[in-house]
Design a protein around this nucleic acid. Sequence first.
DNA 1: TAATGCACCTGTGGGC
DNA 2: TGCCCACAGGTGCATT
Length: 275
Amino acid sequence: MPELPEVESIKRELNRTILEEKIEDVEIFRGSVIKNTHADYLRAVMAGNSFTWVGRRGKYLLLSLSSGHLLVVHLGMTGQLYWQEAALALKKHSHLVWHLKGGISLIYRDVRRFGKIFLLEDGRTDSIPGLLKMGPEPLDPAFSLADWLALFEGAGSSPIKAKLLDQHFIAGIGNIYADETLYEARINPHRPVKSLTRAEKTALYGAMRRVLKRAIEEGGSSISDYVNARGQKGGFQDSHRVYGKKDQPCPTCKQPLRSSKIVGRTSSYCPFCQL
DNA sequence: TAATGCACCTGTGGGC
DNA sequence: TGCCCACAGGTGCATT
C-alpha cells in the first residue's frame, strides 16, 4: 500500500533514472485509469516530451513534462510505477507504458485499479479533489511542532487513528504508518482526538516523523503489491511492530497485540502499552 | 459541519 | 480439487 514513504522512494528513484529521456511513445491498455482527459489526448501530448522533474505531495506523484504539462499519479492500494528494460515482458495489469529513448520503459501497473492518473495543462493541481485541501507535509522542515499542535484546535470526538488517516488533516499517512506511529507514541488508536494532552500530541509529532523517516531510509513497506521504481520490494515491512501482527506478542510487554476496526480500517495495537 | 458507511476492484486464503 | 465468501484498504460520495 503506497503511503508517503513508498511514494517518496519512487520519486527519488525516478529522479535518478528517467529525467531528460525522450518519450518516444505511450501505450495505453486501459484508458479508464486516466481520470480527467482522454487516453488519445494524453498519448498525443506526451509523445516527444521528456520528464523534467518528479515531485510528491502526500501520496501523489507529480511528474513534470518539458511541455509544461504535469502528470499526476495516485497509486491507490496496489498501484506501481517502475521502470524496466524495454525488452522485458509486461506483467498482467500493466495499464500504461511510456517507451523512453534508451531502451527503458516506465510502467504503470495496478491490480485493483484504485489508482488514478491526471494530466494537467499548466501544473495547477486545484482541479484534483484529493490535492485541493491536502493537509501539511509531516516531513516538511518548515512544519513545526507549533504547526502540528495548531491542527488540533477545535478537534472533535473522532478517534485519533481516523484523524491520522484523514489527508485533509495531515498528508501521506495510511493504515500502516498510522498504526506504527501510534504504537511509537504509546497512544491507543481509539482515543478521541480531543482527549489527547499536549504531551501526547507532542509525542505523536515526534513519533510520526521518526517512523516516516525510518521507513523512507528502508525503502518503504512491501505489503501485498508495493515495489519501488526499480520494481524491487522495500524493507520496512520487516521493521513493523504492530501493523498486521494481531495476536503476536507486543515487542515491549509481550502481551498479545489486539486488532479492531476503526473507520473501516483494521487497526493493530497493544492495549497495555498504548493508553 | 463532522462523522460514518459504502462502492469501487481483484488476488488470496480459509472453510466446506 | 473446486467453489464460495470474507477480507485487504485509499478515496470520493452519500447519508446521518
